[in-house]
Design a protein around this nucleic acid. Structure first.
Length: 138
DNA sequence: CCCTGATTCGC
DNA sequence: GCGAATCAGG
């Protein structure tokens, strides 16, 4: 697929319109991918516009932030866990305060007694729950 | 995971 | 010159 003058014209037009490369690719169709669009746009010298990535690394990054953090991680992290530690999670994975309970687990159990109780509650039967709520006779 | 444009490199 | 693959960030 060659870049005819028509296509190039349209490309410029759409690009200037602020459409994204993928949008333009869809618009032009004909087996044109966004990569093709971007590649051509570059060759044509079309600017980079609100390009998310590159741009400038103008990052003075001078925000001391007053007493940043505690360097001594007091949390039980995934790496700290041994098999006799309670693996009950606190927080969300990925958060830097994500950690585990870490207390001694019950023998053979992944959690401490308290968290075993949390984890292993039997779910009340979903069917046949109808009569449970009935007021005691008499 | 979805998206963005940028770059590289074999064709 | 072209664009898929890859990269790098949102």
């Amino acid at each position: 697929m060659a870049w005819t003058d028509e296509r190039i014209e349209k490309l410029k037009e759409l690009w200037d319109s602020g459409l994204s490369a993928s949008q333009i690719a869809k618009e032009l169709a004909e087996g044109v991918t966004r990569n093709a669009v971007i590649g051509k746009a570059h060759r044509l010298g079309l600017k980079s516009r609100p390009s998310p990535v590159k741009s400038d690394k103008t990052k003075p990054k001078a925000a001391p932030k007053k007493v940043v953090k505690k360097e001594t991680s007091k949390f039980v992290t995934l790496l700290d866990l041994t098999d006799r530690m309670c693996k009950w999670p606190h927080g969300h994975p990925g958060d830097d305060d994500f950690h585990f309970c870490g207390k001694s687990s019950e023998p053979g159990m992944p959690y401490c007694a308290a968290h075993c109780a949390e984890a292993y509650q039997a779910q009340p039967p979903r069917r046949d729950r109808r009569q449970q709520q009935r007021a005691p006779i008499r």
